[in-house]
Amino acid sequence: MIVYLLCLVLFCLGLYCILRKRNIIKIIVGVMIAEYAVNLFFILTGYRMRGRSPIFSPDVDITNMVDPLPQALVLTAIVIGLATTALLVAIAMRIYEKYGTFDITKIRELRG
């Protein structure tokens, strides 16, 4: 249970970074940290004590395998995370070219 709590702390750090920081690169870093925490949490829920990797071998009979389903889902989520990060960085670089700053409060047209 302590492992889940440490994972929760990591997610809260990412959430704090997204909400509190004003530099766009820092916000992207926060999104990445939160993503790591969620991926790690899914793998943690599928872990079995003293388990083996979910790979069969021809001669050895392996019974105690970890859950392969969260691993497959996280594999998909990691690749999608790379795509969203690349898109975020592209938008941030375009903003830097147009306004000359990464600070979200100094961007004129975002002001309400």
């Binding site: 793998i43 872990y47 990797s53 970890v66 691993q71 990691i78 690749v79 790379l82």
Partner: peptide, 13 residues
């Protein structure tokens, strides 16, 4: 945590 496929993907990403 015995997830070698995910570890390889995470390293590349």
């Amino acid at each position: 945590l015995k997830a070698p496929d995910v570890a390889i993907t995470q390293l590349v990403v």
